[in-house]
Every structure is written in structure tokens, then in C-alpha cells.
Nucleic acid binder design. Structure first.
Lengths: 334, 334
DNA sequence: GTCGGCAGCTTACACGTGATAGTTCCGGGT
DNA sequence: ACCCGGAACTATCACGTGTAAGCTGCCGAC
């Protein structure tokens, strides 16, 4: 029966607009897309625009994508570790830049299962994809098959792993350089025991080791600690008399260390200097206020987005870490 | 010339699979979709599957969506205020549930501009949309035109505003009830000066006011404070002798208050009890450790996802706040 | 007066998929 | 001898869009 077809309210298509305006569908398309090389009198143009407005016409993205072969979606694949305000600023600024180019940015948290990513670009067919870790060759092949034209970081170029390698090392390096500048000669590095943060932690501690080597110092003692006051207190006791300053993987680890020190009656930076990373809001209100490394992630988001757009046009990405992307925020703890 | 067409590597379609398998495209479709009502011998089935595997065939989402009228994408529209681990768990669990139903979840941060949302569902044509705030009637009309079948919260039902009203009030109510249970009779509520958090803050403070009214107490004094130690110190001085306990909008505000108290030589909870909200990791390491309200956001994510799926099938959403969704985490500060 | 050219349209195809309505072939019942 | 019915496929349409190609007047130029 006809009821079956009437069940779902019919979509308004350009055919409806054409009928409403008394013109052909092609003319409607020419007007709505400002197709160059067409001569359309202003009267006709207005007739189409008003008809479209009256009916509330919205072009149907799947059909448009099917026809043109290109979608207006960009997707950022985020890791499933907890994201702070740093990532929020990153995504927000990137979205602004992409939006100006007509792209809509969405994010997808990747929980680690193999086929989750495949289903993502199968369901979305984005024009561009950015990930925090380099994609495997299998993933890249799948994306190419799905017709995705711009991918960052492209696994082919080894130095392009923005977050895990380059970026993380920069953070660790800056932490260590600050402590060395304060006269410390024997450092420790405290990693989080959250397994998903292991790769990033390795990057940051390697950066600190680089800075130490450059200053002619021994590499930091690397310890993985649980976020528990009693546990950190014991670790701090182990450090006493050996190291005079500690780089924490992030501000939360740093706060845990400060809490452990507090139970021992120790205080930073006199007994042990502590520096964090990521500049979470709570760090300012610690006792003592936490010295940390802030990442200008908004700026990075803008540059990533611009690199994606450049890739879409077939140019080289050109993505580098700039001075000023990472900064020391000096408070009292180091 | 033909070069133009060869420029972009051709997409592998079901036509290619059909040719490879020596069958028609229809048969390929029947096999790959397990279309019921077809009798296909196992040999043919394997022939198709292996051909598809060999060529690395992936169905093209836009064409599939165009044909079926339904996409496999769900999108969560998130506000642009900074998101903590609470929201991460929420999205992660919801994604799991939706994934089991064949839907891919993506998130989109909405920066507030009017046409950003319109472009979102124009570019994505999601099957389902969830937002943290109720949508305006104009937005709903646009989504219906774009063919989105499930939207939560639907603006029609007034009590369905999960986050801003129901959820936020529940948090404020629990904060106040805990303090009242500790014997406090005169409370204050401290809001953040971040303008984007104003609506949520109003909801939480209203919940606290409800709890006070229920206990026969006066409503809390509501103060908006900047996240600055000196500013909070002055506000705390103003409270002295008047209120004995304060609910903070969130843990960051609470930490700022504790820092302000510290500069005055005061300590919680003896001089002023402080309770936060959201249970950020750093709260455990404050001095004193912060009592707060934890939201079981993972559970909520699951229920929201299930409600979306139910809506997709045409049933009523049935979305309520359950006991156990919000819990007091009692530490030392209150 | 005929004809090229251009403004102002329309007709028709392609994109890749899902599914309906067939078509062919073959074995078995009457 | 005939047909019925099911197994195993295939031909074809529809989805909504962008655009290349074609069509019709009308005006000015020779």
C-alpha cells in the first residue's frame, strides 16, 4: 500500500525546489552552487533562492559526496587516555581553521580494537584524518581504499610522529633544562602507571635524558609510580639523598608526589624540586604552586589543520615543532 | 585525455568484485549483506567473499546511505567548555554500546555559532544525535529536514534536559545534603566566573537550594569567583563567621578556595568545610584531600546510548536519573 | 535574409549501492 | 507430455546530486 512509503516524511530534494520555482533541477543546482560559466538573470536566481528558502531545502550530503567523490568531514582520532583542557583547545582551534575551508571537524575516540578504525572511515568517508599516533600500513591501506585523501601523520615519513615522539620529547627536554638551570645535577623521572600513557611517558623521559646528556649529566632515574599518596611517599624516601629534583610525567603525577612529600614533612623545592607537565588548572592551587610545562596546543591545532588543508591540495604537509609551542610556567615547586 | 580519469586511483566497487567472482553485482550484494530470502550455495558464497577479500573491497558509505536512507553514524554534540575525565568515560562507554548496534560514534564540539550545527548534520547525516543541552525548535526542524531520526534530548518533553537541569541539580543537591548531614546550617555556593559554565552552575546551585529548603534551611549565598588565590582569599574572609561550609561548582573552584584559605592560615574542614564536584584526579592530593561528588558518567553514557537506540526503533526514550549515578566521595575537606 | 553566437535554459548521464521483479534451468508430480 | 515450483542467478530501478552536452529563441552582423 501507499502507507508504507508515506510512513517516513519525505525528504525535500532539489526536485521539489525546481517544481516550486517552475524551473529545471539543473538551473536550481547552478544557482545554489554558484556554478561558474552559467548566465542566470537575477530574477531567476531570486526565484530559486526563495523557493529553496520557502521549502527549507538542504542538500543531502551522501548524494553530494557520492557524486563529487569528496566529503566535507575531517576527523581527529584521539587516543582513549584521559584528555585534559590541552586537547580541548587543540581541537577547538583546529575546528575553526577547518571550518573556514568548509570542513566540519569531528573527533572519534579510538578504544584500541582493530576494526573500530576501519568502521570509522567506512561509515564517515572523511576527506581528511588526523591521528595522535602514526597509522600502521594496514590502516593506511584501508584509508586509501576508502578514498581518504589527506592523512596525518603519514607513516611514510619517520619524523612526522607529532605527539608521541617529537612533541613528547620536547616536553621532557624542557622540564629537565629548567631543573638543570636551577642548579640540579641529579634528576629523577616519574612516570604514571596508567598503561595507556606508557608510550607518551617514554617519549617525555627520553627528552629529559637528552637534555641531561647535553649538559654532561647522568640520565634521570626513571620510576613508574601509582597515583597514591602512600606509594609516592615511599618513592620519595627512596630518592632522598640521591636526586634533588624530579620531573613528573604530568601534573597529576606531580601533585601526587607533592602529597607524598607532605606526609613526610618535606617541602618543595627545598627538599626536592618538582616540575609537572600539561598545566592543569589545579596546579596553581597546590601547596606549593606547581611549576609545570604548558603546551600551546591551540597554536598546534591551527598548524595541524593548515597542514591537513595543504595535504588536501596535494602539497607537502610541512609540520614542525616551533619554539614557543612549549613553555615553562614557573611557580614555586621548582 | 584518459589521464584525467586515472589521476585519482579508482575506487574498488562491487562491480569489480562481481567481475572478479564471475557473477553479477546483485549476487555479490546478496552475499555481502546476507540478504534474507535468497538461496545461495556455499561455493558461490565463498567465491564472492574471497574475491572481495582479494580486492580489498569496502562498501562506499555515501552510496549505501543514499540508497538506504540511513547512516551508521551517531554524533554527540559537546559544549565547548573544558571537558574532564568525566566526559571521556561518558563518551567511551556510549561508543561501546552504539558500536555493538553497528553505529560509529563521533563527537563534535559546538563553539556556539549558529550555522555550525547546521553544517554538522548537513555534512554527516547522522542517524542519531545527542546533545548536552536541549535543542532549539529551529535546530530540531533543521535536523528533521536533514533526515535525522533520533535526537536526544527532544525539546518537546520539558523534563528531558539531562545535563543542564536534572543532572546538574542532582549534583548540587547531593553536595548540600552531605554538608547538612555534617551539621552545617548555613551554606555558601561558589560558582566559576567562566561564562560558558554559567548555565550548568545555575543548575547545580539550584539543586543545593532545593536541598536546603527541604531541610528547612535558608538558601546558600551564591558567589561567583575568579580562579585566583588572592581573590578566593578575600571571598573566604567575607564568609567567615557567616557560613560554615561551601559547595564549589567543581573541584577546580574548590581547590582555589582551599588555596585561598591556606594563605589566611585557615584549614578545612575546621574553619570552613569545602566540597567540590566532578572528582578530578588532583583532588585526592590536595591539602586536605578534597571531598567531592563523583558522577558515574560511564553508566550514564551507556543509558544514553541505549535510549538513542530505542528512539531509533521508534520507541520512547525513557531516560531518567538513577540513584547511584551520582555519589559522594568523602575525603577530609568536608 | 541568412546565419553565427550567446543568453537562458533543459535533458541526460554518472556516482555506488540495496532490493524488487524477473529469467533460466532442472527435477518431479500428474 | 506437460507444467509446477524452487534453486540460482541477473536485469533494472531508485536514491539525490553535479555537470557536460544539447536545445531554443533572439539579436546583431554580413
Amino acid at each position: 500500500m501507499a502507507e508504507e512509503k508515506k510512513r517516513t516524511t519525505r525528504r525535500i530534494t532539489s526536485v521539489d525546489v525546481a517544481r516550486e520555482a517552475g524551473l529545471s533541477r539543473a538551473t536550481v543546482s547552478f544557482v545554489l552552487n554558484d556554478t561558474p560559466g552559467q548566465s542566470i538573470p537575477e530574477a531567476t536566481r531570486q526565484r530559486v533562492l526563495q523557493a529553496a528558502e520557502r521549502l527549507g531545502y538542504t542538500p543531502y550530503a551522501p548524494a553530494r559526496t557520492l557524486r563529487s567523490g569528496r566529503s566535507d568531514v575531517a576527523v581527529f582520532v584521539l587516543p582513549d587516555w584521559p584528555q585534559g583542557p590541552t586537547m580541548a583547545a587543540f581541537v577547538e582551534r583546529a575546528a575553526q581553521v577547518l571550518s573556514r575551508a568548509g570542513l566540519t571537524l569531528v573527533t572519534h575516540v579510538h578504544t584500541g580494537d582493530e576494526q573500530g578504525l576501519a568502521r570509522l572511515w567506512t561509515a564517515l568517508t572523511p576527506a581528511a584524518v588526523f591521528g595522535m599516533r602514526p597509522f600502521t600500513s594496514g590502516e593506511l591501506a584501508g584509508m586509501r581504499r576508502a578514498g581518504i585523501s589527506a592523512v596525518l601523520p603519514a607513516a611514510e615519513e619517520p619524523g612526522s610522529d607529532v605527539s608521541t615522539t617529537l612533541w613528547a620529547r620536547g616536553v621532557g627536554r624542557l622540564q629537565a633544562e629548567h631543573l638543570i638551570g636551577k642548579g640540579h645535577t641529579r634528576l629523577a623521572y616519574a612516570l604514571s602507571d596508567e598503561p595507556r600513557l606508557a608510550a607518551l611517558g617514554r617519549g617525555r623521559s627520553e627528552g629529559a635524558a637528552q637534555a641531561c646528556a647535553q649538559a654532561g649529566l647522568a640520565a634521570p632515574t626513571v620510576t613508574t609510580i601509582a597515583l597514591d599518596t602512600e606509594v609516592t611517599a615511599r618513592v620519595v624516601e627512596g630518592w632522598r639523598g640521591d636526586v634533588s629534583a624530579v620531573c613528573a610525567y604530568n601534573d597529576e603525577v606531580a601533585l601526587a608526589i607533592l602529597a607524598g612529600m607532605r606526609t613526610l614533612g618535606l617541602s618543595a623545592p627545598a627538599d626536592l624540586a618538582v616540575i609537572g607537565a600539561d598545566d592543569i588548572p589545579g596546579g596553581r592551587f597546590a601547596a606549593p604552586p606547581l611549576t609545570t610545562v604548558a603546551q600551546n596546543s591551540g597554536e598546534l591545532g591551527i598548524r595541524i589543520a593548515e597542514a591537513l588543508l595543504r595535504t588536501l591540495e596535494g602539497q607537502a604537509p610541512d609540520l614542525n615543532l616551533l619554539p614557543g609551542d612549549i613553555q615553562i610556567v614557573e611557580r614555586a615547586s621548582a
